[in-house]
Amino acid sequence: MRILLKIILLVVTGIIFFTGLAFAEEHFFEIKAKKFSYTPNIIRVKIGDKVKIRLVSEDVTHGIFVDGYGVETRAYPGQDGSFSFVANQPGRFTFRCSVTCGEFHPYMVGYLVVLPNARFYLYALVVLFIGGANLFFISKKKA
């Protein structure tokens, strides 16, 4: 039974990963940075996609650093910055300004969502499982 479960898990993971890679696309995003937000503020890609980003500053110097991927660029007024990377980790990652641009700078962030957001679904399943298990054990309790 355990071996069967492992095989199923392996196959499902493999399908998700390889179909993701097989249908990998290239995405280009032009992200405009202005105190203290990005436009677009959320970008969604699929796992395996190649992501190219151009950062355009609309006021002062801004930067962009993507958590988990460690890639960074800066944009000065009139001088864009760019970088590219392969979105090989699923989940939601914050991208944040890497150049002090004003008082709210530490909170100038956006989200990169690499689908499928397995991390969120896994945690949500764990919560639901714990809740269900709690209900099960409590229903069995005797005075």
Binding site: D67, T94, F120, V127, I130, G131
Partner: peptide
């Protein structure tokens, strides 16, 4: 220089924290 630390793991850590404290709550 500004150096974010373990921010790639932030989601994992936040999720695990919520689950641990959810366990205590229930």
């Amino acid at each position: 220089p500004w150096t974010p630390v373990f921010t790639g793991l932030l989601g994992y850590l936040q999720g695990a924290t919520l689950i641990i404290f959810y366990l205590f709550s229930i």
